[in-house]
Simulated assay, not measured.
Amino acid sequence: MINRIVKMEFDPDKVNNFRDLFSQQQLLIRHFPGCLHLELWEHPASGNTWFTFSQWESEAALDNYRHSDLFRETWAATKVLFNAKPVAWTVKTAVSL
C-alpha cells in the first residue's frame, strides 16, 4: 500500500470552485479501482491551501488512476484554479502506532 499527498494552493476567489469540484468527483475517485481511502484536508490559517490524502493498493494502481479519463478531466478542471504549482509526494508508512 502507498499513500499519496498532494498540496494545492488556489486563487482565493476560486476556493469554492475547487470545493464544489471535489464534492462532485470525490466518490468517483474513492471508488476508482485500487483506491483504498481518500481525504481532503484544509489548511485553515491560509484559507487557500488544501491537501488530498489518498491510499492506493500499489504504485501501479495509482498510475492507472493518473492515466485515466477521470484523472485527466478532474485535473484539467482543478489546475486552472491554482495560484501556485502543486506538490505531490508518494510515501509509505514507516511506523504506525
Rank of each mutant, 00 (worst) to 15 (best):
R4M: 10
I5E: 00
I5W: 00
V6G: 06
K7L: 14
M8A: 02
F10G: 10
D11K: 04
D11I: 04
D11W: 01
P12A: 12
P12V: 10
D13G: 14
V15I: 09
V15D: 03
N16F: 03
N16S: 15
F18N: 15
R19I: 15
R19M: 14
R19G: 11
D20L: 14
L21A: 01
S23E: 07
S23H: 08
Q26T: 10
Q26S: 06
L27N: 15
L28D: 12
I29L: 05
I29C: 09
I29E: 05
I29A: 03
H31T: 13
F32G: 07
P33E: 05
P33Q: 01
P33C: 07
G34F: 05
L36F: 02
L36R: 12
H37D: 04
H37M: 07
L38V: 04
W41A: 14
E42G: 07
H43M: 12
H43V: 13
H43P: 08
P44Q: 09
S46L: 07
G47A: 10
N48F: 02
N48T: 07
T49S: 15
F51V: 02
T52V: 11
T52C: 02
T52R: 13
T52H: 00
F53T: 12
F53G: 09
F53S: 10
S54M: 02
S54P: 03
S54W: 06
S54D: 00
Q55W: 06
W56T: 05
E57F: 06
S58K: 11
A60S: 15
A61S: 13
A61W: 06
A61F: 06
A61G: 03
L62D: 05
D63I: 11
N64F: 10
Y65K: 09
R66D: 08
H67T: 14
H67P: 07
S68P: 01
D69M: 10
L70N: 02
L70Y: 09
F71Y: 12
F71M: 00
R72F: 06
R72M: 08
E73L: 14
T74I: 04
A76P: 05
A77G: 13
A77M: 12
K79N: 04
V80I: 12
V80E: 07
L81K: 02
L81A: 04
L81Y: 03
F82H: 01
F82W: 07
N83C: 15
N83H: 10
N83D: 15
N83K: 14
K85M: 13
K85N: 09
P86I: 07
P86T: 09
P86G: 03
V87Y: 07
A88H: 02
A88T: 11
W89I: 11
W89G: 06
W89S: 08
T90I: 14
T90V: 13
T90N: 09
T90M: 10
V91P: 00
K92I: 09
T93Q: 03
T93H: 01
V95T: 02
V95I: 14
S96C: 04
L97I: 11
